[in-house]
């Protein structure tokens, strides 16, 4: 357990946790992120702050995380290895910890081709698994990658993402095992729509006892409309959206689609809670933060535990 992290303490206690996420603004106004944070207060246990997601330039994840922390919220700072080399990564980890940020999500990041700077040079001095190792080394051994000791090492609860729907499927369990061996403590998954495949992945984790070595937070994203579902199916890398879900959304009138999307999301959460080894959910209501409270409430997950 990492006592500095509320998320870690809740999971350790056996609570079924709820996390959500905030995308930082494409500008300098701190109120934008604070407003999003306020919408999530009291309905989630921790809030992911994305790091230039889809490779589009935004306010830095570290500074937006600090803003949330100052509001008394619990940020999970996402960090991608696309934009920083090992010097900047270690430096930012120290800086984040100095501001009381105690959760980090280690990611490789979306390729710059998808963003607003497709001509940028990517860094990838390390990958997400090596980032997990780096944070663990700094925290547990109190050392920099170069071997020098760290005065006051950063106390970070280490997370990573996993996409059970990416290919090849057969390595998705071994890849999770690799992340666990590197030192990951919690995993947030890609949005789950193909429940059968997710259950198969969880079964694979259980067969190897991996569900006891890492907390799995299952990712859900409510559909706002058929248009959004189609966009996610066809344009977002790594998404697996069965056709019958889109058909179901199509079967209701347009003005009722978002309501139906939320209903589907609640059904998913209900199923996820019954799966052995799922320790919580991660609600990614993309630019729809105002709906998170309703989802969590209707899922019967309120009030959130106080620790």
């Amino acid at each position: 357990m990492i006592p500095e992290s509320k998320l870690s303490r809740l999971l350790e206690k056996g609570e079924f946790v709820v996390t959500s996420e905030c995308g930082p603004p494409r500008g300098t106004n701190p109120e934008t992120i604070k407003k999003k944070g306020e919408l999530l207060r009291n309905c989630v246990d921790a809030i992911n702050v994305t790091d230039n997601q889809t490779a589009v330039v935004r306010m830095s994840s570290i500074s937006a995380s600090i803003l949330l922390k100052q509001m008394g919220l619990e940020p999970i700072m996402q960090m991608v290895t696309r934009d920083r080399n090992r010097i900047a990564i270690q430096s930012d980890i120290l800086g984040a910890a100095a501001h009381g940020i105690s959760n980090i999500l280690c990611l490789s990041g979306d390729h710059q081709k998808f963003g607003d700077n497709p001509k940028a040079k990517n860094v990838y001095d390390m990958d997400s698994i090596q980032l997990i190792q780096t944070v663990k080394l700094m925290r547990d051994e109190g050392k920099f990658l170069g071997g020098d000791p760290i005065v006051d090492p950063p106390k970070m609860f280490i997370g990573a993402a996993e996409n059970p729907f990416a290919d090849p499927f057969e390595i998705r369990v071994p890849r999770t095992a690799k992340k666990i061996n590197a030192g990951v403590q919690f995993i947030q998954t890609q949005c789950i729509y193909n429940m059968d495949k997710f259950e198969k992945w969880m079964e694979g984790l259980r067969e190897r006892g991996l569900h006891k070595k890492v907390y799995i937070l299952a990712g859900v994203t409510p559909f706002k409309s058929v248009g959004m579902a189609n966009y996610m199916k066809n344009k977002v890398p790594g998404m697996d959206i069965p056709d019958e879900l889109i058909q179901r959304l199509k079967s209701v009138p347009k003005e009722k689609q978002s309501e139906e999307g939320i209903k589907m999301c609640l059904e998913t959460i209900d199923r996820l809670r019954k799966i052995e080894g799922v320790s919580g959910i991660h609600v990614m209501a993309i630019e729809w933060e105002e709906k998170v409270h309703e989802i969590v409430e209707n899922a019967g997950l309120l009030p959130r535990p106080v620790i």
Partner: peptide, 20 residues
């Protein structure tokens, strides 16, 4: 690998193809 990952693949690998 488009990201030169030493411990890949990333979550964008689909049906044998790269996300890019």
């Amino acid at each position: 690998c488009a990201k030169s990952l030493l411990n890949g693949p990333c979550g964008g690998s689909s049906l044998g193809k790269c996300e890019i």
